[in-house]
Design a protein around this nucleic acid. Structure first.
Ligand SMILES: [Zn+2]
Ligand SMILES: [Zn+2]
Ligand SMILES: [Zn+2]
Ligand SMILES: [Zn+2]
Lengths: 161, 161
DNA sequence: ATTGTGTATGTTATAACATCACAAGGTCAA
DNA sequence: TTGACCTTGTGATGTTATAACATACACAAT
């Protein structure tokens, strides 16, 4: 299993942003979906960091920029981005994060640092779960795999609580 | 990986209930924790079926029985039961379910039928995720593994939407 | 030009989930 | 009896999410 995990390592983040936006533009064109100003702006906001953001935090940003102030504005944009695969919902946090593997078809898994809030996205198909599903006749459609713990930096800082 | 998944198969459910309650009693005694009437009743309510229940649904039951009517009553009891390992929280559903492997130390995974709401609990340690964590230096403390799909019965009924 | 259709947005209200803060009771040991 | 600790009661509040309905715009068919 190669480590294509991204999120904790220091890296050229602007290239993440550029790549994600380019992929979104292209894929919307292909899918005849519209990356409208609000939708694009929400994606940009989420791309600012590898952390998850609540819908209301996103909304506050939109509001500050005059792009909308009511919950449905944020939820609709987030819903669109999730449907397109540009953004993932983190169930554990009731929050959203920009995808770090834009374009690639994937079944994401997440590692969430409980200390600093950074979230890394990994590819981690769960063979044991697939086996359990097969054994019990369950038709597996979608999986949520989210781990919580401490990222390398926060471990180094000695954070334990 | 043996199939110790439980939830979809028809089975002697009363033995689930009895076993879970006995284990809870015993383990509380060992841990010097108190299985008070409200806590015990919440566990019994959750044990009625292999489906997840929202905190407010549990609360409605407690209220009907005169055991409490305010949200903290339900959340406190559920929190206690989760801490003791008798109940699991299903993040995907913002809901709670009684553990089907009482007493055993485990890292549960869930299969959630989107049609009928039944939830099966399996053991499904995610080796790929552990590998990804090790590769990136992430200290993995807790994992959420939840699959959504169709249970055997609902597949048979031809449910697709 | 008008009408229809589809998509996106604006807005109000409310549903659904969760916690805070403080008061009150019960148990038990010092 | 007092104090420490745990549990419960309750009002208020905070947070997350969606329902429902109205408006606006682009584009195609008439
Ligand atoms: Zn992704
Ligand atoms: Zn961290
Ligand atoms: Zn369990
Ligand atoms: Zn089912």
């Amino acid at each position: 299993m190669p480590s294509d995990t991204l999120g904790f390592e220091s890296h050229d983040h602007s290239s993440c942003v550029v790549a994600a936006l380019e992929t979104a533009e292209r894929q919307c064109k292909e899918n005849k979906a519209q990356l409208t100003p609000v939708r694009r702006r929400v994606l940009e906001i989420l791309l600012e960091s590898h952390a998850a953001m609540g819908a209301y935090d996103v909304l506050a940003r939109l509001d500050a920029e005059g792009l909308g102030s009511k919950p449905p504005v944020a939820y609709r944009a987030l819903g669109f981005l999730v449907d397109q695969g540009f953004v993932h919902r983190i169930e554990r946090l009731n929050a959203f994060i920009a995808c770090t593997h834009p374009g690639a078809s994937h079944d994401p898994a997440f590692m969430i640092c409980r200390e600093c809030g950074l979230v890394a996205e990994a590819q981690a198909a769960n063979l044991a779960l697939q086996q359990a599903a097969a054994d019990s006749g369950f038709l597996l459609e979608q999986t949520v795999i989210e781990a919580e713990g401490l990222c390398p930096a926060c471990q180094a800082k000695g954070a334990t609580a």
